[in-house]
Computed example of a mutant assay.
Amino acid sequence: MSDVTVTNVPEKKRWEAHVDGELAGFAEYQRTDELVVFTHTEVDGAYEGQGVGGALARHALDEVRAEGTHKVLPICRFIKAWIDRHPDYASLQYGARSQVTD
């Protein structure tokens, strides 16, 4: 499979994944003053099992982390499960406990 290109498309309120110029999947979100709420992720059947969903999740969460202004609320089961499998992203979740100790 070719590389997955992921871009944020704010006017559609979603990150989109493209493979060879074709839309392969998307992760929809709603944005509030404090949160990015992931509501739904979908990968076209032709691209399932090829890392498109993972690329979407990683890119979107990396972008939220880089902004540094929002927490994530993963209502979408896929994004929630992806975060659970990648604990280095757990601190992005709304309500996550800080790792800072005295």
Score class of each variant (00 low, 15 high):
Gln99Asn: 05
Pro74Phe: 07
Ala57Met: 11
Met1His: 12
Ser2Cys: 00
Ala90Val: 04
His18Ala: 14
Trp82His: 03
Lys13Thr: 08
His18Asp: 10
Val9His: 13
Arg97Pro: 00
Trp15Met: 10
Gly51Val: 08
Ile83Gln: 00
Thr32His: 09
Thr41Phe: 08
Ala17Thr: 04
Ala46Asn: 13
Arg65His: 03
Ala24Trp: 03
Thr5Ala: 08
Tyr29Cys: 10
Gln99His: 14
Arg14Pro: 05
Arg85Lys: 15
Val52Asn: 05
Arg65Tyr: 08
Ile83Lys: 01
Asp3Phe: 09
Ala60Phe: 06
His86Cys: 03
Ile75Pro: 00
Gly49Trp: 08
Met1Ile: 14
Ala24Pro: 05
Val6Leu: 07
Thr41Ile: 14
Ser98Asn: 04
Val100Glu: 08
Ala96Met: 06
Val4Ile: 10
Ala27His: 03
Asp44Arg: 11
Glu34Leu: 14
Ile79Ser: 05
Gln50Phe: 01
Gly51Ala: 07
Leu61Ala: 00
Glu11Cys: 02
Ser2Arg: 09
Gly21Phe: 11
Phe78Ser: 07
Ile75Met: 13
Cys76Arg: 13
Val43Asn: 03
Gln99Thr: 06
Ala90Tyr: 02
Arg58Asn: 10
Val43Tyr: 03
Gly51Trp: 03
Val36Met: 12
Phe26Cys: 08
Val64Thr: 09
Ala81His: 15
Leu56Lys: 00
Leu73Gly: 00
Phe26Tyr: 15
Val43Ile: 03
Gly21Val: 07
Gly53Ser: 11
Asn8Ile: 07
Lys80Cys: 09
Phe38Tyr: 12
Gly49Lys: 06
Thr69Lys: 14
Thr41Ala: 11
Leu56Arg: 01
Arg85Cys: 04
